[in-house]
Every structure is written in structure tokens, then in C-alpha cells.
């Protein structure tokens, strides 16, 4: 069943067309790769899916609902959760606190129950804490719980982003270059984590590292100059002349 259907999404900045009628359908349970040379419009596409930018034209259906006009937080509430290419940490919070914040949507405590520390509120806090700890263990940040987010090195910042997103229990997880800046060993570990996440969650992965994409994704879509030029299995994509041309034209080689 299709969880996400983007149809004919276009966007231009000034006179520059960044996306030209991009259509993309994701099925539940997929781990889809979205690749393309620099400046192909991948991040712009993410920003449009999540509501950071609005498309000039086109439709975005999520779970059968047209979410094109929803603000960011309402898309998140429907299960569309993302990470950022440049990590956006809650710098002043601890790792645990930041991950607990990720569970925000699943609890109800507001002003009075927080102040009165009602039984329900305490139960919620306990649960949120336990969930956050579990997620941190899962992504491998368990020993950094009390560290300030701002103090984590790049690799752990990426994991932190992922932990916060997972805490929000996504139905569709959008990952914007999660392995950028990671060491090879860290990349391997992250791949394991993503495969595990994919057992329950649909993932759309923007990634520059071809090895990561080719080994993780069952299907791959290729963006070039704002157009979707190919879609298929990793093998098909590697053989696709249009893809090769797009990359070679940029001077990069798909391995």
C-alpha cells in the first residue's frame, strides 16, 4: 500500500527551477534511496515533503490524505518525521532530555498536570524516560545520556538526530544524509541500525555514499537537475545510462 504519493512537485527559487514535476510513490515497509548529484534538489524535496517549504505546484498525499497545506508539526503528528543534513540539536539539553522531547506527541501532560505532578503525569514521564533510554541503547548512545547535546562529536550528533526522530515513532522516516561525516566503522554500525528500524518503519534515505545506498536500499530513485530520471533496483540503477551520464557529467563515478 502506498504510504507517500508525491505527484508533480515543482519548486523554483527566483527564476531557478529546482524541482520539475517530481513524482514519487513510496510503499509501506520500503527502504527507498534517493540519490543524485549535488544540487539535484534532494534536500529541497525533503523540505517540501515535511512542510519547511511549500511547493509551487503538485500534490503530496501521505497515508491517503492530502497534506500539502499542513504545517510542519501537523505532518509530524501524522508520522512524517525527518532528520537534517546539518544536525539541528537541542544544544542546551542533555542527550536523554533531547530524546525524551522526541516523544512529545505521545503524551498529554500540559500545564496543570505538570505542576501538580499527577499520577498520570508521573507515569508518562517514567514511560518517556524508559522509551528514550531504550532508543539510546538501540542507536548506541546509552553511555552519553547525560552529556550535553552540544558537546557530542559529529558522528554522535547524527545518532542523536536519529534517536530523536525514532522517539517520535515515525511511520515514514526521512533521513537526509545520515552517514555524512561518519567513519567507515560508524557507517557500518548505522547501517545495521537502519535495517533494524526498517523492519517497522518505511524509510526514505538521501545519501551520497553509494556503497551505503546500494547495500541498504531495495529500490532507488535518482534526481538530477530537479527531475526524476530513473527508478529501480540498485542493479538497474547502476546500469542505467541516464544515471551514469548524470554522475559522470558531474565528474563523479558511481561505484
Amino acid at each position: 500500500m502506498a504510504i507517500l504519493e508525491a505527484a508533480g512537485v515543482s519548486k523554483s527559487f527566483g527564476g531557478l527551477m529546482v524541482l520539475r514535476g517530481v513524482s514519487l510513490t513510496l510503499h509501506e515497509g520500503e527502504l527507498r534511496g534517493l540519490i543524485g548529484p549535488n544540487g539535484a534538489g534532494k534536500t529541497t524535496f525533503f523540505n517540501i515533503l515535511t512542510g519547511v517549504l511549500s511547493a509551487d505546484s503538485g500534490r503530496i498525499n501521505f497515508d491517503g490524505q492530502d497534506i500539502g497545506s499542513y504545517p510542519i508539526h501537523q505532518r509530524a503528528r501524522r508520522g512524517l518525521i525527518r532528520t537534517f543534513q546539518i544536525p539541528q540539536p537541542f544544544s542546551g539539553m542533555t542527550v536523554l532530555e533531547s530524546t525524551m522531547t522526541g516523544t512529545h506527541m505521545y503524551y498529554r501532560a500540559e500545564v496543570w498536570s505538570s505542576v501538580l505532578r499527577t499520577r498520570k503525569e508521573r507515569e508518562e514521564e517514567e514511560e518517556a524516560r524508559a522509551k528514550a533510554k531504550e532508543i539510546l541503547r538501540f542507536v548506541g548512545l546509552a553511555d552519553r545520556e547525560n552529556a550535553l547535546c552540544a558537546n557530542l562529536p559529529v558522528g554522535e550528533q547524527r545518532l542523536l538526530e536519529l534517536a530523536r526522530a525514532l522517539a517520535a515513532q515515525p511511520r515514514l522516516l526521512l533521513l537526509d544524509e545520515p552517514t555524512a561525516g561518519l567513519r567507515a566503522s560508524e557507517k557500518e554500525a548505522l547501517k545495521e541500525v537502519l535495517l533494524e528500524v526498517n523492519k517497522k518503519t518505511t524509510i526514505l534515505l538521501v545519501e551520497h555514499d553509494m556503497r551505503v545506498v546500494m547495500s541498504l536500499c531495495s529500490r532507488i530513485s535518482v534526481l538530477s537537475y530537479g527531475e526524476l530520471i530513473a527508478e529501480g533496483t540498485p542493479e538497474e540503477i547502476q546500469r542505467d545510462p541516464k544515471v551514469i551520464q548524470a554522475y559522470l557529467g558531474e565528474g563523479a563515478i558511481a561505484t
Binding site: V52, I81, F84, S91, M93, M100, H104, Y107, A128, A165
Partner: peptide
């Protein structure tokens, strides 16, 4: 939970909206 939401807004509005 309420306070964390406020702090999240202080630290990074975009990230706060995204969750």
C-alpha cells in the same frame, strides 16, 4: 513535558516542529 517543549523551541524551532 511542557517545559521540554518550551526548551526545544528555544534551542531550535525547526527541529521542535519536526517532532
Amino acid at each position: 513535558r511542557f517545559g521540554r517543549a518550551l526548551k526545544a523551541i528555544r534551542e531550535n524551532e525547526l527541529a521542535a516542529q519536526s517532532i
